[in-house]
Design a protein around this nucleic acid. Structure first.
Length: 438
RNA sequence: GCCCCGGUGGUGUAGUGGUCUAUCAUAUGGGUCUGUCGAACCCAUGACCUGGGUUCAAAUCCCAGCCGGGGCGCCA
């Protein structure tokens, strides 16, 4: 049972059930609703854990006080001291008969948006008034689940010997290429926000840390306007030494499985509020080669050449065949970043993989190329300048072990598990093409 | 960046040239009611994104801007 010592409050609303009839408590929270019937009224108090009914009786409170409390605006913050009455007609099974009500902060009126109103609210309005939107239990539950996910992932990685690291988010230039970077002024120089900690976590392999992970924001200056992209998102990155792409995939399976197991255990109430059912995936996840899917897509009439990435249309088709988690493996080198390790048997392919959930991509990873000369060659092949990567390439010259890793988008993963339609739903204060406030 | 769509009270909507002094719900303010739990009932309040144009007449048609939604590309 959760126990938080806060001087004003003796209990959260969900703890009242276990207390005996007549027990004296103080509960604190927001005035969600007042139903006034004249000589009796019902005040619904909401806190983080639920709601409770406070029953106000005019005869017992006196006319003036009764009127004052009934006149409180919705969403005002109060503390109620009183006795539990279990012989109530309330559907909640108990009510509080107040002896003292402190008004700590009165809300203004009208509210920018309703919390329990029976009208839908646009996501735009909700995000503009996020602090109110987040008071809704079904919105709050998403973030409790997101919290469990990052906690669960962290637990698994720590058990597996990973060390949590923090790499810089402001860089001179030269990450992986491919995506646009946000430019920032750095005193007399230009600098950029990182798109990924990729190069740094690889350098940590040369540093001998063996296994590292980082949970941190990544920034991408892409002008996308979709339900699954953010310009700032939380990237969960790992890198592991003396490991192959298979080892990385196995680790990913374990991490995903444990996170889901944790949610099923710790977020029963949230899943119920959201009306979402999550099944533990079967392991191992299917591993499907790029070529196989390429053929499949072509056979279904979608034109796609070797080396191209799967289009949305193609992924929709693939998602109909593979519904849960599955890996796409053995990608063409030209479709992936320069740091991927080519396959020994055929260097046109690389030891890279994506983890999909149906049509949606949630992770990409690879065994990395740890051979200095070959890595440098691949940088040139991609049209990049090795000079720009000196700080990175040097780490491969004085003892770099073979290594592999992956990155998973926290919001994407949460979105999939909670069946959310828009990634903004599972981001507290999303940063997209237009939004930087709040 | 490209394509398509949209902007009406606090919130969500109806309304495609005149009968719009603009619909409905919700909210807000006031009132009735001692057991509500989406309380009920009565009364009231409150809106056509901005600028320009067409027209006798514009919420409605045209242009520009601003803001937003969906899709694509790209990706986590």
């Amino acid at each position: 049972m959760l126990t938080i010592n806060i001087s004003m409050r003796t209990h959260f609303t969900n703890q009242l059930n276990e207390l005996p009839d007549g027990f004296n408590v103080t509960i604190c929270g927001w005035v969600q609703d007042i139903r006034n019937l004249g000589n009796i009224s019902f005040l619904i108090l909401r806190d983080r854990e639920g709601i409770a009914q406070v029953t106000l009786i005019k005869k017992e409170m006196g006319e003036d006080y009764y009127k004052k409390i009934n006149g409180l605006n919705r969403e005002s913050v109060i503390c109620v001291n009183g006795k539990i009455n279990k012989k109530t007609q309330s559907k909640l099974g108990l009510e509080i008969i107040p002896t003292k009500i402190d008004v700590l902060n009165e809300a203004e009126t009208p509210l920018p948006m309703g919390i329990i109103d029976k009208v839908s609210v646009d996501i735009e309005t909700r995000l503009n008034n996020r602090f109110i939107d987040l008071r809704k239990p079904e919105v709050f539950s998403l973030f409790r689940i997101e919290s469990s996910i990052s906690k669960g992932i962290r637990e698994t990685l720590e058990n597996e010997g990973f060390i949590e690291i923090h790499t810089p988010k402001i860089i001179a230039t030269a990450t992986e290429g491919g995506t646009n970077l946000f430019k920032v002024k750095y005193f007399e120089n230009d600098a950029y926000l990182v798109q990924s900690p990729q190069l740094y976590k690889q350098i940590m392999m040369a540093a001998g840390f063996e296994r590292v992970f980082e949970i941190a924001p990544a920034f991408r200056a892409e002008e996308h306007n979709t339900n699954r992209h953010l310009n700032e998102f939380v990237s969960i990155d790992i890198e592991m030494s003396f490991s192959t792409d298979d080892d990385a995939m196995n680790m990913l399976e374990k991490v995903i499985y444990n996170a889901i197991e944790k949610i099923k255990k710790d977020n029963v109430r949230d899943l119920k509020i959201l009306n979402v059912e999550i099944n533990l995936p079967e392991r191992p996840f299917p591993r499907v080669k790029y070529d196989e899917l390429l053929d499949y897509v072509n056979s279904k009439g979608i034109e796609m050449k070797f080396g191209e990435d799967f289009s949305s249309e193609a992924l929709t088709l693939i998602g109909e065949k593979y519904k849960g988690f599955f890996f796409i493996t053995r990608w063409p080198m030209e479709a992936r970043a320069f740091y991927v390790m080519p396959c020994e048997d055929d260097p046109r392919y690389g030891r890279a993989f994506d983890l999909q959930f149906g049509e949606r991509e949630i992770t990409s990873g690879a065994q990395r190329n740890h051979i200095y000369s070959s890595l440098k060659e691949n940088i040139i092949k991609k049209g990049l300048n090795p000079e720009d990567f000196k700080f990175y390439l040097d780490a491969f010259r004085y003892g770099m072990p073979p290594h592999a890793g992956w990155a998973i988008g926290l919001e994407r993963f949460t979105m999939i598990l909670t069946n959310s339609k828009n990634i903004r739903e599972v981001t507290l204060f999303p940063r997209d093409r237009r939004r930087i406030i709040p």
